[in-house]
């Protein structure tokens, strides 16, 4: 996967809690057998009406968010189905960082395996970012090395992420290759099973 160290980008605010993966990528698009090309379907039922026309009342369709690469949303982002198509769709659409007060476990994990950096920030900080991005064109920098999020107007905060996931993202490692270095341990474990 693509390593991610320091990312600067336009912020798209989605002020909703409990956004489930059925919303991020509806099931009718899960039948493809490759990892690519899901971006066009992201938030499909919110972005398009039943005739497949863009819905102007959905914020992501506003020109001011064209090219956004940082998504900021409400708590429990990515709950529900384990479908990795959700991070694939977000990544393919152009998002590299997602900021929220909390994430569903499986989704969080899936992001880190696809070069998307999920950042947990306290609710009031997230709200500030959402307000800023709703008011105006708003850019943020997210630095995984120093674990900082900041803008050029004086906002700065740090975030936590476990070291292992951080290493993976920073280096864009193939986790299977990493695990295969532990082949001895796995073989020993298997040999000890009765």
């Amino acid at each position: 996967m693509e390593p991610i160290r320091k990312h600067q980008g336009l912020v798209y605010p989605l002020n909703r809690a409990n956004i489930d993966t059925d919303q991020i990528i509806p099931k009718q698009f899960l039948k493809r057998i490759s990892r690519k090309g899901f971006g066009q379907f992201v938030f499909y039922n919110w972005r398009f009406d039943s005739k497949g026309k863009l819905r102007e009342d959905f914020s992501l369709n506003q020109p001011k968010y064209d090219g956004a690469s940082i998504l900021v949303a409400g708590e429990n982002f990515g709950c529900g189905s384990s479908r990795e198509h959700a991070p694939w769709a977000l990544e393919d659409y152009g998002f590299r960082v997602i900021i929220a007060p909390s994430f569903a476990d499986i989704f969080f994990n899936n992001c880190t395996k696809n070069g998307i950096l999920p950042v947990k920030l306290p609710e009031d900080k997230v709200q500030t970012l959402i307000d800023n991005a709703e008011a105006d064109t708003y850019h943020l920098t997210v630095d995984l090395e120093s674990k900082k999020v900041f803008d050029n107007q004086g906002f700065e905060t740090t975030f936590d992420i476990d070291d292992y996931k951080r290493e993976m993202l920073l280096n864009g490692w193939d986790e299977i290759a990493v695990t295969l270095n532990y082949e001895n341990h796995i073989a020993t474990f298997e040999a000890n099973q009765t």
């Binding site: 990892r35 696809n114 476990d162 986790e175 299977i176 295969l180």
Partner: peptide, 20 residues
């Protein structure tokens, strides 16, 4: 527990997962 597709591949290849 449920896993994503990258982990499905990981388990197929190694029969293990990394879990905190």
């Amino acid at each position: 527990f449920g896993i994503g597709t990258s982990e499905v591949e990981h388990v197929l290849a190694t029969q293990t997962v990394w879990q905190a």
